[in-house]
Write a protein that binds this DNA or RNA. Sequence first.
RNA 1: GCGCCCGUAGCUCAGCUGGAUAGAGCGCUUCCCUGCGGAGGAAGAGGUCUGAUGUUCGAAUCAUCACGGGCGCACCA
Length: 596
Amino acid sequence: MTTSWTYWKNDLAKRLSDVLGGAVSPDDIVVPPDRSLGDFAFGCFKLAKAMGKSPADIAKEIASKMNFGQSDFTSASAAGPYVNFTLSVGEAVHRVVRDIEVLGEKYGSVETKKADELLLEFAQPNTHKEIHVGHLRNLVLGQALSNVLSAAGWKVVPMSYHGDVGAHVAKCLWWLGKGFRFQVSGFSVEQADKLLDQIPVERRTGKFLGEMYAEASRQLEANPEWKDEVSDVQRKLEAHDPAWEKLWRETRRWSLDEFATIFDDLGVKIARQYLESEVVDRGQEMVDHLLKQGVAKESQGAIVVDLEDKKLGVFLIRKSDGTSLYATKDLALAELKLKEYPKAERSLILVDNRQSFYFKQLFETLRMLELNPVPEFVGYEFVTLKSGAMSSREGNVVTYQDFRNEVISYSTEEVVKRHAEDKWNDGKIEHTAWCIAMAGMKFGMLKQDNDKVFTFDLEQALSFDGDTGPYCQYAATRLASILRKAGSTPSDSPFVRGREDEPLTRSFDHTSEKALALTLAQFPVKVAQAAEELRPSLVAQWCIDAAQRVNEFYRDVNVLESEGELKEGRLRLIAAARSALVAGLGLLAIPVPDEM
RNA sequence: GCGCCCGUAGCUCAGCUGGAUAGAGCGCUUCCCUGCGGAGGAAGAGGUCUGAUGUUCGAAUCAUCACGGGCGCACCA
């Protein structure tokens, strides 16, 4: 369905083509820098050359020839080299409200008959480590991307991938054993049971395992001679030694359970969870195969793929001690994905930009193996603290749990403060505070572009003033409040729908109404662009814009004091505005409370 | 040394497929609650868009080169 924004541009392009006797593309229709100039504009620069006249003269000529008749537009006027077009307030608002009422929660989404499949890998925290705010950017961005791409008509398969084997696990478990005074060699199943029994339930967390890992890294730094023990542990794990495997399975469960809880809380939805342990054996096989084919070769005891001729250096795919690397497993993962989803059109991998070189090497190798489609790298810059970059190896991280608790306690405090007299029950307070906390955290991470290093500042993250998620929620909430007072709100859903057959007035008369409607009209275009450019930040920016227009409308137009069909129309406008705003925030996986 | 990314207001960022006086938020200075909810709104101060050259009728936007900062570049992930 063609929604209003596109409809208007197409309409203007057609009328201009008629006047000029040549093709004008809708893409040539732009928006003036100042709303008082008009709602749309057409620059005459390109025509000037072809027609041999000055742009200003052409603009005047077009303005005088434009005849709108039956149309949403009321006037065209020349201003320098531009022709500006103005929409009728009544027609503009009418059309946008109708769009939203027809589409409801689908407003902004493309309807497709047969969606192409797109694999989206994100959410790659490793087991045996804690989740920190660096991971949060990936999780939040990934889920938003998943939503935005779905809205744009892709059949998205969101997938997670967890490093549950490899050096970091070996280090963690090695230190777990050593720290509890067990001998690494000759470690038995009974000893593994004994060790596990010694760890109290409340310590069976990712945080605890992360501390073990960080401590192991420190110990190895100080005592390099222990590296052989760690290699030994990793080899035993890869050989499925019963004792180490037991310890590994149990500790891994702690991590995976924790992930499930956190993903659920964040609204992260994964269709297929991959584990490195699923692909490690096949990865080693593929390395052998590559060796046989002559694609890979031995170098300093390790196995590498030489990519020097592509200016990508050498790609290490097996360590000299015979154990696997990230790359060993990634080769097999790529193969497995294609086996399970043979119809996939595209495959995206969302990872930290610092890994871009590695992924270029990986993709080049996949190309040599003819594993198509070769994935697309979607990068984002890392999250840093004022004190410096976070590293789980060094242990200077803000864990997600700590951050979340901080934000929740702050938002709870605010909610309680604002509703001291409203007799809200604990459940309502808790839910509202959770919605606001989610909005604060997620919006803060989504509103800026992926390629900006994100400096995490707790104080800033806790502020809900200005262009923040809670600001957008607040705008939607005030609209809901008006609807409630008018007694016309559907309590179960914020989305308007099914009123498109009821007559709607065209008597809207305020510029704030039109400004709001025009912003709402841009939503589908922004979503499409966000999907095309893989930038959910565009949707976040739109949400701020929409909330600002809502606040201006709120200031300028009193809905409940209007009368007759205009009041009814305005109620439908704000219901539509709320519906669109909730849809926009929904794409960012941000919930909107009824009240706040 | 080579490669990738960033450089726009005091701070955090939009704008970048070239076009009208460069926009927000925070902070700062003033206002606005007997008004549909002040997590809000209005106004003000604050800019050689890092610099240079080039392309163009036109450059924050494109190209090249500097400068500044960040991040990568084989047994970590």
